[in-house]
């Protein structure tokens, strides 16, 4: 182990600001390959009725909010679902793979963005990330690879997965 402290004065002057942490990990295609390798997936258009949304909320105990999951199906009934969760400080796109039996096969974070307060809930702020490629996000991230510091809890993603399992029961079984 070799540690080099930058020094009190220098460390205090090297300050970088927002976004503290914004990373694209996987594109949709990469996430599909990572979670369901070698399985051909076809987009499955999903239109939830208000009754279905209510049923999902009731079963999962998690509000739908603006969630609009995108669904793909494999030949043997596998499902690949992309969804988003918005917390107080974060905006996360994640993918869940379900087997033909509806059991979770894997979860991958696709995009993780942190911000504070209103920005996350503000549509315009979020819009700036729409269509961003992995490359663009990496540039945004610069060379800030190692952020030592407390990170957020993953509770919102855990809730999101609960919601997707209810979605499976209500609309995809």
């Amino acid at each position: 182990m070799e540690w080099q402290f930058l020094g009190s004065v220098a460390a205090a002057t090297v300050i970088l600001t927002v976004p503290a942490h914004a990373t694209v990990y996987l594109t949709v295609e990469q996430a599909q390959q990572a979670l369901l390798p070698g399985i051909a997936l076809t987009a499955f258009p999903l239109h939830l009725s208000d009754a279905q949304k209510a049923a999902i909320e009731k079963q999962s105990g998690v509000a739908m909010g603006k969630s609009a999951p995108r669904v793909w199906r494999g030949a043997s009934g596998e499902l690949f679902i992309v969804d988003e969760v918005i917390g107080k400080h974060e905006y996360i796109t994640y993918a869940v793979a379900l087997g033909g039996d509806g059991a979770v096969r894997g979860i991958e974070i696709m995009e993780y963005r942190e911000s504070y307060g209103y920005e996350v809930r503000n549509a315009e702020w979020r819009h700036q990330f729409v269509g961003k490629t992995a490359k663009a996000a990496l540039k945004l991230d610069g060379d800030i690879k190692n952020i030592g510091g407390a990170t957020l809890s993953c509770r919102h993603v855990t809730d999101g997965v609960k919601r997707l399992l209810a979605l499976y029961d209500v609309a995809l079984k």
């Binding site: 182990m1 070799e2 540690w3 080099q4 402290f5 930058l6 460390a11 205090a12 090297v14 300050i15 970088l16 600001t17 927002v18 976004p19 503290a20 942190e114 911000s115 504070y116 060379d143 800030i144 690879k145 190692n146 952020i147 030592g148 510091g149 407390a150």
Partner: peptide, 21 residues
């Protein structure tokens, strides 16, 4: 590797504190 830490007064701000191997 350069190491950044969050500023506890304003966690969206990052401080570069040193390097670690």
């Amino acid at each position: 590797e350069p190491i950044h830490l969050r500023d506890p007064a304003e966690p969206r701000r990052l401080l570069r504190v040193g390097s670690l191997k």
